[in-house]
Simulated scan of single mutants.
Amino acid sequence: MTVTTGGRSTRGGDAGARIAEQLRGRILRGEVPPGTRIRQEDVAAQFGASRVPVREALRILEHDGLVTLVANTGAWVSRLTLAECDEIYQMRERLEPLLLRLSAPHLTEADLDDLQRLAERMSETSDVDEFLELDRAFHLGAYRGATTTQLGELVVKLWNTTQPYRRAYSRSMGADAARIVHDEHHLIVADLRDGDVDDAERVLAGHIRRTRRRLSRHPELFEALQA
């Protein structure tokens, strides 16, 4: 299947899907931080819905990696320890280059032009939230050519679970680190245009690994988000 950023479809659950879409956006934008309890009655009142579509929405978000459901207890916005985040980044470091390799032969010139524009816009913005939105669009856009049954969906889930910590890190990223990030985005596009998938994979793996190592040096980011 083509990589997407949305959740799974629901059976007769259009209302649940709509609620999930709204909550997903708020979580990914950092409006609802990790560890926040999500009360079904509050969500139902907010959206003017019964608890049935709210429960379906929470199941969708659990599938997305954004919500943790505890039986007979409730729902919380998912959160990670530093060790868990490190493990997820190690998974991404190995899985995303493979997804890029599967995608690359099917990317059109128009797709590559879109990636180039996203890379340029990222290097021009100083707004962290805009950068994160563009960064997500860039990487998932680079994978859009892949047809997979599980890998694409898994990668999106891994992106979802690390989003709050990527945001916290990006706010503290210095000018030198930012410049390297932007250069790597441009290198990936250049490699894809040249048909050098081996180097594109290498740059991408290093790109992810560098973020993982920098995050590991900032345990305070996880402590703050766990509070």
Rank of each mutant, 00 (worst) to 15 (best):
H218C: 15
L225Y: 13
R55T: 11
R26Y: 11
A175N: 03
P105N: 13
D183N: 11
R217P: 05
R171V: 00
E153F: 14
A224Y: 00
A44G: 11
L100W: 06
T10C: 03
D129M: 08
A137G: 04
V197Y: 01
A20N: 00
A71D: 14
D127I: 01
T73P: 02
G30W: 00
A15H: 13
D176H: 15
H218Q: 15
R92S: 08
T211S: 01
F131D: 02
E133A: 13
A57S: 07
V181R: 07
L58V: 09
R212Q: 09
L66M: 06
R39Q: 15
F131Y: 14
V52I: 14
R55L: 10
A75C: 12
T148N: 05
L134K: 04
L66H: 00
R144D: 06
K157A: 12
V43N: 03
T162C: 12
A205Q: 07
P33A: 11
G195K: 02
L99N: 04
V197G: 03
A71H: 15
G74T: 08
T4E: 06
Q163A: 15
A17H: 06
R166W: 01
A20F: 02
V128G: 01
A177W: 02
V54W: 04
S78K: 11
R37Q: 13
A49Q: 12
R193A: 12
D86K: 12
S50Q: 15
A146R: 05
L107C: 12
A83S: 11
D196Q: 12
R136Y: 02
L215N: 07
L140Y: 07
V181G: 09
A137S: 10
I38G: 04
V203C: 03
E120Q: 06
C85T: 14
A45I: 13
R18N: 14
V52G: 03
E56S: 14
Q40N: 10
N160I: 05
H218T: 14
T10Y: 09
A110K: 12
R55P: 08
V67S: 07
V70H: 02
R8G: 09
N72Q: 15
G6P: 00
M1Q: 05
D191Q: 14
L115A: 09
V156D: 10
L28Y: 00
E120C: 01
D42W: 08
R121K: 04
G30A: 02
R39G: 06
